[in-house]
Design a protein around this nucleic acid. Structure first.
Lengths: 147, 147
DNA sequence: CGGAATCCTATCGGATACTG
DNA sequence: CAGTATCCGATAGGATTCCG
């Protein structure tokens, strides 16, 4: 990367001295191409794509569990005890519809089902790490600053 | 209880896990410390902290705009034309309450207000980049895979 | 075991109109 | 210019009960 000052310091040519027309100047680290220059939450904006992928309460927790390998419905319930069967089913169906997990049923009695991350779902792993990292940073900074 | 057979599915890609998961084994890249081992969306889980910070429709777009420097209410409206004044106000109040932006009113007539990211808000910059990156990857992979 | 079917409520966000 | 004030329909998601 040529210029790297990712953490601090906004420095876009926005705040100019004698601005007649301040056209939007795009920060191409933040928004590297045209598809991110949306002026509304359009579904094909990359950020929206990601937010849609992880949307819904409990979703990141379900994904986190599946990052360790396939799990059955019951195993998911055991690991997320306060998640109701209805909402768990909702989340699993959502994730399946988004192509992030695959559902396999093994016939027999009792029925067994297993849920696995797809290749697409595994793409979310760095994001989860970043969500975690960012939350830690926010919390630490909040602790260090007076309210 | 016992070991279930887990010959199904590929295992976690990045690191070599040589055994099957019996009890919950925490992936310490994904969840490096105890505060992330939550079994429910508790507010102090780092991931939840982050999700709360960016929650709400239009929020990431407002943040994106402010990443370039302070803007007035009207400038935000100009850049996000299909966002109503009511919802924009909601978002700005939310972000202020979360400590992510600061609001300053400059007296005079007409009244001027400016919204600026706080140090806390700037923490979100790498996350926005990651949200974007991930969305691009998801979209590309979806295009490359047939249904 | 692995759900499906209902029901019910809170909140969210869009539309519209008005104001200091 | 920078918001308020209402109203309102649509979901989201939790609780509960039932099913193959």
């Amino acid at each position: 990367m040529g210029h790297s000052d990712s953490q601090l310091g906004p420095r876009v040519g926005n705040q100019t001295v004698t601005d007649t027309v301040t056209d939007t100047v795009w920060d191409d680290e933040l928004v590297p191409d045209e598809r991110g220059r949306t002026s509304a939450p359009e579904p094909d904006c990359p950020v929206e794509v990601t937010l849609t992928a992880i949307s819904g309460r409990w979703t990141t927790l379900v994904l986190r569990e599946l990052m360790g390998g396939p799990l059955s419905f019951g195993e998911l319930r055991d690991r997320l005890p306060s998640l109701s069967a209805k909402v768990l089913t909702d989340r699993l169906r959502d994730l399946e519809a988004r192509g992030l997990i695959a559902r396999r049923t093994h016939p027999g009695f009792p029925v067994r089902t297993s849920y696995t991350l797809t290749d697409l779902g595994r793409v979310l792993r760095p994001l989860l790490i970043e969500l975690y990292r960012t939350g830690n940073t926010l919390a630490a900074l909040r602790r260090s600053l007076p309210r």
